[in-house]
C-alpha cells in the first residue's frame, strides 16, 4: 500500500491501463503537455507520447464524438471533459449517441469508452464550474455512472471503467483531488456496480456519494460521540449499475435511511433510491427516508454562501440527530 492523492490515483489508473492495453488512448483539453488543469494527468504524455495522449481544441462535441467513433471501431478511449458542467455542451453525444447506439442498432455498435470529468463544488468556482451533475447522467439508459470518494476507489474503479465494454461516465470530485489515502500497489482493478459499507452502524444508514462520503463519515463519528447514535455509512460509488442489494440490506438492518447528495434537490439520485426503498422495504422502515441535498438553487461562489448550500458535516450531523429520535 502506498499513500497517494486522489489525483495521483487518477494518473496511476490511466497509466496502468495504457501500459496493459495498446487500444487505450486519452484525449482532452490541456491533458497532455500541460498535465491537466487539475494536474490529474501529469506525466502521461511524457510516458505514452503524442499518439496516445492527445490535446484537443476546446470542442467538447468533437472530443466525445471522436472518442465514440474511435470506441465503436476498436479503440478504448478515455475522454476528459474538464468540468462536468461542460457536459451540457456535448450532451447530445452522451445521451443521444453514446448511450443509445448499442440499443438502436440491435447490439451491433459497441462504445467502450470512459468520460472522465471533474464534478462538484467546494472550490468557489461559481454556478457554472461547481455543479454536481451525477443525477443528469443517472437518468439516461445506456450509460454507467461512477463516482469514487477515495484514492483507492479512483484507481480501482477507473481501471474497471476503462476495461468495461460499456460507456462509463466517471465523476471525479474536484475538491477531493488533494485528499490522500492508501492505494493498493501494483495492478488494482475494482468492480463496477458495487456499493461499499464504509462505516458499520445500527441506528441509521447514511447513503452518500463522492465528496459527501467523507463528510458523512465525519458526521457519523460525531453522532456516535455526541448523541450516542450508531450510523452506518454506505458509499454508493456507482449510480448505474446501482447496488440495491447492499443498500436495501443496510436499510433493513437499521430501519432508517438518510441520503446525502451534492446534486440539487429535484430528481437527485437520493430520490430514486428513496423510491426503491419505499417500494421494496417499506415494512422495514422506522422513519421516513430523509434527503439532505444541495438546495434547488444555482451555487454561489463566496465561501460562506457555497458552504451554506452544499451539505456540510454540521448539517448532516444535525439532520440525522433530529430525525433519529
Amino acid at each position: 500500500m502506498a499513500e497517494l492523492t486522489y489525483r495521483e490515483a487518477v494518473i496511476e489508473a490511466i497509466a496502468q491501463e495504457m501500459r496493459r492495453d495498446e487500444r487505450v488512448v486519452f484525449l482532452g483539453e490541456d491533458i497532455a503537455k500541460a498535465g491537466g488543469v487539475f494536474k490529474a494527468t501529469v506525466g502521461l504524455w511524457e510516458e505514452f507520447g503524442d499518439l496516445r495522449v492527445r490535446d484537443t481544441p476546446i470542442s467538447e462535441q468533437a472530443i466525445l464524438g471522436a472518442a465514440m467513433g474511435a470506441a465503436m471501431t476498436g479503440l478504448r478511449p478515455i475522454a476528459e471533459i474538464m468540468f462536468s458542467d461542460f457536459l451540457a455542451v456535448c450532451w447530445d453525444i452522451v445521451t443521444n449517441q453514446i448511450a443509445k447506439s448499442r440499443y438502436m442498432t440491435g447490439g451491433q455498435v459497441e462504445v467502450p469508452l470512459v468520460i472522465r470529468t471533474a464534478n462538484g463544488g467546494g472550490a468557489r468556482f461559481g454556478a457554472q464550474h461547481s455543479q454536481a451533475v451525477e443525477n443528469w447522467a443517472m437518468m439516461i439508459p445506456g450509460i454507467k455512472v461512477v463516482a469514487p470518494s477515495t484514492p483507492a476507489d479512483v484507481k480501482g474503479l477507473l481501471a474497471a471503467a476503462i476495461r468495461d465494454p460499456d460507456p462509463v461516465l466517471f465523476f471525479e470530485q474536484k475538491s477531493l483531488y488533494a485528499t490522500k489515502g492508501e492505494v493498493p500497489d501494483g495492478e488494482h482493478v475494482d468492480e463496477l456496480g458495487k456499493a461499499k459499507v464504509v462505516r458499520e452502524g445500527d441506528d441509521v444508514t447514511i447513503l452518500a456519494l463522492g465528496l459527501m462520503v467523507p463528510r458523512a463519515i465525519e458526521a457519523a463519528e460525531r453522532l456516535q460521540a455526541e448523541a450516542g447514535i450508531s450510523a452506518s455509512v454506505v458509499d454508493i460509488r456507482s449510480l448505474v449499475p446501482l447496488d440495491t442489494q447492499t443498500i436495501l440490506a443496510e436499510v433493513k438492518k437499521t430501519a432508517r435511511v438518510v441520503t446525502v447528495e451534492e446534486n440539487p434537490r429535484l430528481c437527485g439520485w437520493g430520490a430514486e433510491i428513496a423510491s426503491i426503498i419505499a417500494e421494496e422495504c417499506f415494512y422495514d422502515l422506522d422513519m421516513p427516508v430523509v434527503r439532505i441535498t444541495t438546495p434547488h438553487i444555482p451555487l454561489s461562489s463566496a465561501d460562506e454562501l457555497e458552504d451554506e448550500m452544499i451539505p456540510s458535516v454540521d448539517r448532516i450531523f444535525e439532520s440525522v440527530r433530529r430525525e433519529v429520535d
Binding site: A62, G65, G69, A71, T73, G74, L75, Q97, T105
Partner: peptide
C-alpha cells in the same frame, strides 16, 4: 455502415473518431 444519425451534426465528430482509429 457505422450508423445513421438523426441529430444534425452529431456524426461528424464521430466519423472523425473512426478515422482516428484508422
Amino acid at each position: 455502415a457505422m450508423g445513421s444519425y438523426a441529430i444534425i451534426g452529431a456524426h461528424l465528430p464521430i466519423a472523425a473518431g473512426a478515422a482516428w482509429q484508422a
